[in-house]
Amino acid sequence: MSAAGRAFAAALLALAGTAGAGEIKSGSAFLSPQMQRQQADQARNPGWLWVEQGEELFSRREGDAPGCISCHADPGRSLRGAAARYPQIDAASGKLINLEGRIEQCRAVRQKRPALGHESQELLGLAAYVASLSQGVPVSVSAEGAAKPYYEAGKAFYERRQGQLNLACTQCHDGLVGRKLRGDTISHGVGTGYPAYRLEWNGLGSLHRRLRACSLGVRATQFDYGSDDYLALELYLAVRARGLPVEAPGLRR
């Protein structure tokens, strides 16, 4: 692109940025400056402990099973940007899977090892490590083809009132952005910081764990980790987050 073209594109972007309502921001944009700095500092963001453990697991071999590294050499290059394309349709099954699902699938099919299990420290570590390799890469999921019905289901989930408090995600995460819910500032509710270290959890957790917390917050049914309901919702959130950089491991209250 020419310099003039770039300037024009930048001006367009700036215009889009001032459009207000349409502009979706990352969850960290709503944190205190102090927590923003802490998230950005690898030495002070505890999420990096999981990343380090994940990196170690990634290269380790168990028995005669190949390690992840055997298939994904030079992960800093070969897997850069991978996390930004999840959730996505798995070609083999035709079903939507997220990053954790893909890691479990590699383990089961390629490594022939038992599943690590949702929210296990090993899976969180591997997911955080792989996601960290995409830090700064803009989210670019597809909602076309076989992904489309999931996208539609996720959108419907996001927009419908639910639970005893009868609230929809959109009422808080579009309608009330910036307002205070107790000590929290309501963000656009995108998942670009996950897996994230939450002070409330005293540990790292997946996006589905965060979704379960919002469900319970409105006194609604909590769906299972890895359920189609939350996968569809995850895809919808990722479509809303398109263009935002992957931030995992995030730091949250």
Partner: peptide, 9 residues
């Protein structure tokens, strides 16, 4: 007319 209310509520 409430949807998906958690069992305990």
């Amino acid at each position: 007319g409430l949807r998906d209310v958690a069992p305990q509520y």
